[in-house]
Amino acid sequence: MTMPDRSQSRTGAGQGDLRSRLDRLTLSRKEGFQRFAEGPARPRPEQLARSQIKSLSEADLTEYNRSRRGWHANLGPLWTPQMKALHEDLWDIFDSNDQDCDKVKGGIALDAFPGLGKTTAVLSFARKLHRRAIREEGELTDAGQERWPVCRVGLTANTGMRDFNRAILEYYEHPGRFRGTAADFGYRALDSILTAETRLLIVDDLHFLRWRHQAGIEVSNHFKYIANEFPVTLLLIGVGLEERGVFSEGSDYRAAILAQTGRRTTRLDMAPFTVNSAQGRLDWRNTLLAVEERIVLADKYVGMLADDLSDYLFARSSGHIGSLMTLINRGCQRAVRTGVERLDTALLDNVKNDAAAERAREELQQALASGRLVSRPQGAAAWGN
């Protein structure tokens, strides 16, 4: 299998190519994932006071605000209790799969509601795994091929076995990805994974697959083939997988096929933040403090989120990290653009959030206003826990 020179992607070759730039966003090809995994951290804009911002030239102000736009759009990932727990489970399962070839490797299914940071958490884990593998084993395999520890593919509602294998070949940019049967693509996918010594295969958006249709059954069978023949840990990400019968056993033929996937797969989940307990309120506060620390606004102050907006942000996000970060990101963009340079209810009331969060907003606001819910730990201070 011929692969592009890894050094070219590190030195920025092909940055002007549209497909190369899109790959960096979609992570649908190995070079895009490599830039995500090995790239340097985004530089944080300097924290300037209003007087300093006013003294900037027009060109410098334009560049400063541009850098803040990019920074606020990429505040995460946050090391939340949910992400920490998930990573510990992922390391347990992945490292325990370092078995000989006669043993079937256990799979993982991350099954959780939207907006809880599933993909973000998995990509954070995959980045650590990629770096660990390169650090321990080197960039090249013993055969002199480039090592790609992680492969990620996404599914659609129309994905069949041939499409799934072709997505793997697209990731590796295999020259045989354009023509062939489903079996041909399967053998080439196995060859790509073996050649690159890939150890983690991430399949995202699994809920798009129509499990009870023939295409879903074919892909489910293919997952078992991967578990048996491919030296990888299979990590599936989706919504409502348990309700779709992925882990259940049944009496009919199709249910029995799906049940085999469940027997070989460990189900993991991610929960939203809750404020029904002291620990839940502490976790929520620590997360707000972490977000607050990363914000680059001239009039930011300690406690801006964790004290003054704790109830408000919980009501607006329903405790979902995705909804919280969307609201904070959009609020920061407006605060920079309008010159408000801080986050408060007056500004955030004009910022739209996702539909699910907005539907739950009124009920949560009433519970917090009446005291039936409390989002802050007792005795919390802006400078600590």
Rank of each mutant, 00 (worst) to 15 (best):
172 Y>L: 12
174 H>G: 02
174 H>A: 04
176 G>M: 00
176 G>S: 01
177 R>E: 06
180 G>T: 12
182 A>T: 02
182 A>L: 01
184 D>Y: 09
185 F>M: 07
186 G>P: 01
186 G>W: 09
187 Y>V: 05
188 R>K: 13
188 R>S: 13
189 A>S: 15
189 A>L: 10
191 D>M: 07
192 S>L: 11
193 I>Y: 00
196 A>L: 01
197 E>L: 07
199 R>L: 01
199 R>C: 03
199 R>G: 01
201 L>Q: 00
202 I>E: 01
203 V>A: 05
204 D>A: 13
205 D>T: 00
205 D>H: 08
207 H>R: 03
208 F>I: 07
208 F>S: 03
211 W>I: 06
212 R>D: 04
213 H>M: 14
213 H>D: 07
214 Q>E: 14
217 I>V: 08
218 E>Q: 15
218 E>H: 14
218 E>A: 15
219 V>D: 02
220 S>R: 06
220 S>Q: 10
221 N>G: 05
222 H>K: 08
223 F>D: 05
225 Y>E: 15
225 Y>Q: 14
226 I>D: 03
226 I>R: 05
227 A>Q: 09
227 A>W: 04
228 N>K: 11
229 E>Y: 14
230 F>I: 02
230 F>D: 05
233 T>F: 11
236 L>E: 03
237 I>H: 00
237 I>S: 01
238 G>Q: 04
239 V>E: 13
240 G>S: 06
240 G>Q: 03
240 G>D: 07
242 E>R: 03
242 E>K: 07
243 E>D: 15
245 G>P: 00
246 V>F: 06
247 F>E: 11
247 F>L: 12
248 S>Y: 00
250 G>Y: 06
250 G>Q: 05
250 G>S: 09
251 S>Y: 12
251 S>K: 07
252 D>Q: 06
252 D>M: 04
252 D>F: 04
253 Y>S: 15
254 R>M: 09
254 R>Q: 10
256 A>W: 07
258 L>K: 11
259 A>G: 15
259 A>Q: 11
260 Q>D: 08
260 Q>H: 14
261 T>C: 15
262 G>D: 04
262 G>K: 02
262 G>I: 04
262 G>Y: 03
262 G>L: 02
263 R>H: 09
263 R>D: 10
265 T>M: 10
265 T>A: 09
265 T>C: 10
266 T>V: 00
267 R>Y: 03
267 R>E: 02
267 R>W: 02
271 A>Q: 08
271 A>I: 05
273 F>D: 13
274 T>Q: 09
275 V>M: 01
277 S>M: 11
278 A>H: 11
280 G>K: 01
282 L>N: 14
285 R>I: 10
285 R>M: 15
286 N>P: 08
286 N>Q: 14
288 L>F: 12
289 L>K: 15
289 L>S: 14
